[in-house]
Nucleic acid binder design. Structure first.
Length: 382
DNA sequence: TCTGGGGTCCTAGGACCC
DNA sequence: TCTGGGGTCCTAGGACCC
């Protein structure tokens, strides 16, 4: 019955940077980078103008979260270390991330889309899938209407890809950016998808695309032309079959409108690498604080956790994890600290540490009616 | 001039149970 | 005496995504 699905992928254009431009319209048209830590907000000057930080002034371990298209044209991209991007774009404006503002904008654009098409799969702060199959409206007009609703609600533009499935729509939303609409039918996979590099496929990252390249497979078309038996022999049954299917644009995954979180975590990279013994007090304070923040997150979202874990990243960037499963779910900060402390004992500490993280997995939803109300009643005098 | 923080999913070995 | 499978849970690591 759903053999003719119509799925959209909507991606906000340079989302964080665009939200910042709403706040600082005088920066429109300039190379602007968002990211880093200890980056201060622009300073208001005597004449009413603002003084902005520049990339060249940054010192630290921060990375770019995102940037305007003008900045990207200079060769910098998200994930790049700010110290490195400063070499390529020293004069770019650097702004700190304001996640509260981005979350608010995110809520607004999703709510606006939902008034037109309610079957939405959340894919993070700046993108969604939308199932349009049951909406009786011509595709292009519908896409225009959704984009207009997003602009009206946020003042921001987005790009939309529409095809019979999530895989292709995700690729399409990137084909005409920013502010684009790309509609694709299965009959156009060969002409418009096959020329693209294999890493355009969601799920083929740096490692997989490198392995494919070693076998002379660079484009999606070359992947589609590779015999299934060969892919299975090199990548295993599951991955081989998956590679063959995605290369032909086949993807049956539904749009998932509801899901429960699987884990909640907090981690922190230090300004300088810390020594387990020499910096014991500092490490201990950070560790406790991470545990307390995980506990807060758990309580706010209404979960307990059965599996508490830690993550360490050493000065050579190598990371290790340890976790422990408890007989019952916990959400208390000091209980988390105790369990995480046990994990910490099982980890080598002969190298300096650059990152420490605490994770709560095995989440069990708290039944609010049982726990919350009973506690509240117990606290009442009557 | 190295490389954030929050997630998901997969794999693989071992324990343990039937 | 040598030796079954299957299923599930736990743990560690890694790829990938936003």
């Amino acid at each position: 019955m759903n053999s003719h699905r119509r799925i959209a992928h909507l991606d906000m254009d340079a989302f964080f940077a665009s939200v910042e431009l709403l706040r600082y319209p005088e920066l429109r048209g300039q190379a602007v980078v968002v990211g880093g830590r200890n980056v201060h907000q622009p300073v208001e000057q005597g004449d009413g103008s603002k003084r902005f930080s520049h990339l060249r002034d940054y010192v630290g371990r921060g990375v770019m979260t995102t940037s305007t298209y003008e900045a990207r044209a200079l060769g910098v991209f998200s994930g790049m270390g700010l110290m490195k991007s400063a070499i390529l774009a020293p004069d770019a404006i650097l702004l700190p991330a304001n996640f509260e503002a981005y979350r608010e904008c995110s809520r607004r654009f999703k709510a606006a889309v939902a008034t037109i098409a309610p079957l939405i799969e959340d894919r993070g702060i700046d993108e969604i899938y939308i199932d349009l199959s049951d909406i009786p409206e011509e595709t292009y007009a519908l896409a225009k209407r959704i984009k207009q609703a997003v602009v009206d609600a946020t003042g921001l533009t987005c790009s939309i890809g529409i095809s019979p499935n999530k895989l292709l729509s995700k690729i399409c939303s990137d084909l005409d950016k920013p502010n684009g609409i790309t509609i694709l039918g299965m009959d156009e996979v060969a002409s418009r998808i096959w020329p693209l590099p294999a890493k355009k496929i969601n799920g083929i990252g740096p490692k997989a695309s490198e392995r494919l390249a070693q076998h002379g497979i660079n484009s999606i078309g070359e992947l589609a032309a590779t015999p299934l038996a060969f892919l299975v022999s090199k990548f295993g049954r599951t991955t081989g079959v998956w590679l063959n299917r995605v290369a032909h644009g086949v993807d049956e995954r539904p749009v998932v409108t509801e899901s429960e979180p699987k884990s909640i975590s907090r981690e922190s990279t230090f300004e300088r690498d810390l020594h387990a013994k020499l910096d014991k007090a500092e490490l201990s304070a950070i560790f406790t604080s991470l545990c307390l923040r995980v506990a807060e997150d758990l309580k706010r979202k209404g979960y307990t956790s059965k599996t508490i874990g830690i993550k360490l990243r050493y000065s050579d960037f190598h990371a290790v994890t340890r976790d422990v499963t408890l007989p019952t779910g916990i959400a208390d900060g000091m209980a988390i600290r105790k369990a995480a402390g046990e994990c910490l004992k099982r980890v080598p500490l002969n190298q300096r540490i650059r990152l420490l993280g605490v994770r709560a997995g095995g989440l069990l939803p708290i039944n609010e009616i049982e726990s919350g109300c009973v506690t509240a009643q117990a606290a009442l005098p009557f």
